[in-house]
Structure formats: C-alpha cells, structure tokens
C-alpha cells in the first residue's frame, strides 16, 4: 500500500489479487446477495484507492481493508433498509448453479452452506460480525481493532454466537 501511495499501480494490483476473493466472500456471508455484493465490494475498494494518500501503516493492511468493508456494508444496509435481510431461498440455487464442482458434492455443500447462512442470519449483528471475522482468520485483537470493541467483548460475542449456531444446527457442525 505504501508503494501504491507513491504511485506504483502494480503494487495495488498485487494487493487486490491477494485480498479480492476473501473480501468478496466476507461481504457475501455478511448478508449481501446479488448485485449488492459487487456494489459493496466496489465501494470498499474505491474507498481504499481514495484513502491511499492518507494511509498510515499503524496496523496491517488487511485489518484496514476490513474496517472499510464493514463501514461500506453498514452504509449499504442503511441505504436499502435491508439491514436484517437474509439470504432468500432463491439465492442458494443461484449460487449453486455457478459452481463447477460435481453435482453430488455441490448439492451437499450447498445445503449445508444454506443452513449455516440462515443460522448466521439469525444472529445479532455484532455477534455475526465477530463470528464471520473469526472465520476469515482474524485474531481476537484484530477483530477488536476492526470492530472497535474490546477483546473480552469480542470473545464473549463469539462464545454466544457459536452456542446459538450449535443450538440451531445441532449435529451438522
């Protein structure tokens, strides 16, 4: 990011290639669907480009990127008033159709994923963010930096979120 701040476009391309799919998946899991995912992802990356000159390497770029993505998601939910929107039943087959994997395995994973996504959709927003960020591989400290909460708070939210998912999904986890 420091190289891109100095005008090196190839540095940004390398950065984008490293984080684009991971961020896109996070936005998808956070409740977006259809064109909204691409809209939020594009807004997040454009915000990164605009903020490049003000970037200060106080934390990792990944942490900074997910802070921006969460802000864009919050803005999107406020605009569309679909903050609590869940994945509809139509989205799951659409996602499954784009898969190139074998049908049996595809159906199996799609069903599991659909149930997990529905269960995640029932979680409170703070618990869902903490759980999804943890699934992205962030540590408690990094999640605390991204969300702006304390580590103990994040730890508590994660515990409640897993308990609720275990209650809903049972043996499927």
């Amino acid at each position: 990011m420091l190289a891109y701040r100095k005008g090196d476009v190839s540095a940004f391309e390398c950065l984008y290639a490293r984080h684009k799919d991971e961020l896109f998946s996070f936005i998808y899991r956070s409740g977006g669907h259809g064109a909204a995912i691409e809209e939020v992802a594009q807004e997040a990356w454009e915000a990164v480009v605009r903020s490049a000159t003000r970037y200060v390497p106080s934390a990792s770029f990944r942490t900074w990127l997910y802070q921006i993505a969460r802000q864009r998601l919050a803005d999107y939910w406020r605009r569309r008033d679909n903050r609590h929107a869940l994945l509809s039943d139509q989205d799951i087959p659409e996602a499954a159709d784009s898969s190139a994997e074998p049908a049996a395995e595809h159906d199996n994973f799609s069903a599991i994923e659909a149930r997990v996504m529905r269960a995640i959709g029932t979680l409170p927003l703070e618990q869902r963010d903490a759980l999804l960020l943890k699934e992205q591989g962030f540590s408690l400290a990094e999640i605390a930096d991204i969300t702006g909460d304390g580590q103990e708070t994040v730890k508590s939210r994660l515990r409640y979120a897993r308990a609720q998912l275990r209650e809903q999904l049972g043996d499927e986890l």
Binding site: Y16, Y28, A41, I112, L165
Partner: peptide, 28 residues
Amino acid sequence: LPLPQRRSPQELDDNILAYARKHAPHRR
C-alpha cells in the same frame, strides 16, 4: 464453519483496477 466461498467477478476486478489506475497517486 462450512461457509460459502465466492470469487470476485472478472468484470468487478476490471472496474476496480481501472479505477485504481485512474486515481493512482502521482509519482513525485
């Protein structure tokens, strides 16, 4: 958790990279 993975569409990649090239900070 068994969560879905999604790849960023190529069209979105092109748009974002084009935006990044257009608004790249100038070399000084």
